[in-house]
């Protein structure tokens, strides 16, 4: 009799969730139950899930614009990036670096060690230290888990579902073809939605300043000329903010002038560091000189 009562009580709770849009904290449980979505414990994401989440976000970034299919170029960027990452606090992540074929001037990071630079950004640079500066900034975002922090604390928290942390294959399971297609669509919809949110809104401004502060140190620690980092920002500062190639970067980052002002405080620590620029091998590999 007692069991029957409990079952009826639970049914009433779920039914009322679906019909009244009951919320627990910031989560619209009613809506999620309606959609049949498994809730995800955002405070309990392990490294494996973080990497899969990053891979899913990367699939959307590369769905927006593909990689430049040039082995020599991508391997070069991987070497520079891996060297920096090996000097970071998370050297053992499966770091991946790639060049996205786009005229936009930008770079992206995804959780778990996925870093991308656009070919448009590469063309603005003149040496390896500047390339390393761009990658170092993105590496710090990954090391500090800025993207995960953004989804934990922001409005995106409500959109967290299991789909974001597993691969498309795992989401589809061993179902028959028709159902597989439907489930792939469901997975892709959730993953794409999250990536759009994350990369069009951008990170917290303080996280961007933090990535600059520690990015320039990572650059110096790795033996590169740290002041190439400032040169990068000065190069960006010289391009009109109305230039379409900078639209997304300006929407998601503080202006280069603001970033340079904040970095000014770091110069005392680095003023005696002499690092490498490696202009020649950058030009040979990237610019085909």
């Amino acid at each position: 009799m007692r069991t029957v009562f409990i079952c009826i009580f639970i049914s009433i709770i779920f039914a009322s969730c679906q019909t009244t849009g009951l919320k627990i904290g910031s989560l619209d449980v009613g809506k999620l139950v309606n959609q049949g979505v498994a809730l995800w414990d955002v405070n309990n994401i392990d490294e494996k899930q973080e990497i899969q989440f990053g891979q899913n976000m990367s699939a959307v970034l590369l769905g927006t614009r593909p990689l430049v299919e040039n082995e020599k170029l991508n391997e070069y960027v991987n070497k520079v990036g891996l060297w920096l990452a090996s000097n970071s606090a998370r050297p053992n992540l499966p770091w991946r670096f790639g060049v996205i074929n786009s005229s936009a001037i930008n770079a992206f990071a995804a959780p778990g060690g996925f870093i991308f630079i656009t070919s448009g950004m590469l063309m603005q640079l003149v040496n390896e230290a500047q390339l390393a500066g761009v990658l170092a900034h993105e590496i710090i975002h990954v090391v500090e888990q800025h993207h995960l922090n953004a989804i934990k604390s922001g409005t995106m928290r409500g959109a967290l579902t299991q789909a974001l942390f597993i691969s498309a294959d795992a989401y589809q399971g061993n179902n028959k073809t028709n159902k597989k297609d439907r489930e792939y669509s469901a997975w892709a919809k959730k993953v794409t939605g999250m990536a759009q949110n994350l990369y069009s809104k951008g990170l917290d401004r303080n996280d961007e300043f933090s990535a600059d502060k520690y990015g320039i140190r990572l650059l110096a620690k790795s033996g590169y000329d740290p002041f190439a980092y400032l040169e990068n920002l000065q190069l960006l500062e010289a391009i009109s903010p109305n230039d379409a190639s900078l639209a997304l970067m300006y929407k998601t980052h503080p202006t280069p002038t603001e970033r340079l002002q904040v970095l000014n405080k770091q110069l005392l620590l680095l003023e005696n560091i002499e690092g490498e620029l490696l202009e020649s091998r950058f030009r040979t590999t990237v610019l085909n000189d």
């Binding site: 899913n56 959307v60 769905g63 927006t64 614009r65 005229s103 379409a244 997304l248």
Partner: peptide, 14 residues
């Protein structure tokens, strides 16, 4: 080469 803006992200597929 084409850009990478908010609209492009909206149209993207994994």
């Amino acid at each position: 080469v084409r850009g990478f803006d908010e609209e492009d992200l909206k149209k993207a597929k994994a």
